[in-house]
Nucleic acid binder design. Structure first.
Lengths: 216, 216
DNA sequence: CGGCTGATTGAGGCTCGTCAAATGTCGTGG
DNA sequence: CCACGACATTTGACGAGCCTCAATCAGCCG
């Protein structure tokens, strides 16, 4: 349901990898470790090397909305503005590369392809966010859960069996649901024969055609 | 609740107005007239001159999600990719300027400030979309309606009394609610003394402080 | 003054949230 | 290897919030 950004971003990756690949500092993170916080100065841009990352915001009363999950190869933290608008944390043990924002804008000023690559990443983020809006505004709990599973499958290049790197609470906070509704929805999908749940963090898509029809 | 993009985009407006101001074709539209459709070739970029515009997507079964409302000065239709991902229609009678996408990318290639301006517009769109996600994922009907009213007030530079340019169905489809819930919520806000509704498309913010506290 | 469209109000139902309890999972230490 | 404890997930019962369907009302234009 969410847009297949990876297929389209090969040259993006290529253009930026020249930058982010070389002088980048690598961070090793353990699960739930914070990478940056909402409101902090945005000095760096990041790329997931391995593992996965969540970015989120919280309301005063504690309600949390996960903005996006970031998988290997994805960039994050490249919002405009001097400060981060979201908090970023490792979803699992992970390693990320970071580049100084200044280095990136220097590069963008020198090389048009790099500037275009950064622009494209931002535009793809916008598309993903718009898909997210559609999901939250107009889809049922079941459609949302299915949409997330298919999105994870696509972004992690999984076939039938997929590895869900986040817990139920993370899924709920991404989908605008509660943990109980996510759990119930997954067992309902299992009962309907659409998926199997060999373990909590593994899902088998047993009828991908039907699942995809639900999210169209 | 939504981000105050206008305050930050003065130089953006300035940089692009040089382009969009001169060789632009102007379209006069009457209410509900389509500007472009989802899936059509994205040949132009647009700016609202007067009136307002909605962009939206619809699911197969007719559910509609309004992506964004665009007011005077706002740009729209500048997604990457060859085709439009949303449909754009005039919310009211409106006039919009349009520039060929090719002209814009030529300019961006020549002038760094123009490229940066376009990038900034996209990044601001992303921020707005993220705010929308938070609203749809984690806010109650009342909080959503209040958020929209305050957003309209801000973007149209209204003080206490504001002009709501869209009907209840548009509000509902932006907020992920039904028309009845929007209507009931507005009368509830009126009963609580937080707003007044002198007419269907006019709202008076009677207690802005309380309203703002609801959306923080 | 009708007639049309859009908004409001009402009654009832369904989906999802809340609260609570049971069950499962995993790491740690015996 | 097993037992234990901490934590995550699942399940259940119930309620709230929002949706659906339907009727009424308000505004607007001929």
């Amino acid at each position: 349901m969410l847009s297949p950004i990876r297929a389209k971003s090969f040259d993006t990756d290529f253009a930026l990898d020249g930058v982010l690949g070389m002088p980048a500092t690598c961070l090793r993170l353990s699960r739930d470790e914070e990478i940056f916080g909402e409101g902090e100065d945005a000095d760096y841009v990041y790329q997931v090397v391995s593992g996965a990352v969540r970015t989120y915001r919280i309301l005063r009363d504690g309600r949390r909305q996960i903005d996006e999950f970031h998988f290997a190869g994805d960039y994050f933290g490249l919002e405009m503005g001097a400060t981060h608008r979201v908090t970023a944390e490792a979803l699992t043990d992970a390693t990320v590369r970071m580049v100084r924002r200044g280095a990136l804008s220097d590069l963008a000023a020198q090389r048009g392809d790099a500037a275009r690559a950064i622009f494209r990443l931002t535009a793809e983020g916008l598309q993903r966010s718009q898909d997210h809006v559609l999901m939250l505004g107009r889809r049922s709990a079941q459609e949302r859960v299915v949409g997330l599973l298919l999105d994870i499958a696509q972004r992690t290049r999984a076939e039938a069996e997929l590895d869900v790197p986040m817990g139920r609470q993370d899924m709920a906070d991404y989908l605008g649901l509660t943990i109980e509704t996510v759990s119930r929805t997954l067992t309902a999908l299992q009962d309907e024969g659409l998926i199997a749940l060999p373990s909590v963090r593994h899902v088998v898509l047993k009828d991908r055609r039907s699942l995809e029809r639900m999210t169209a």
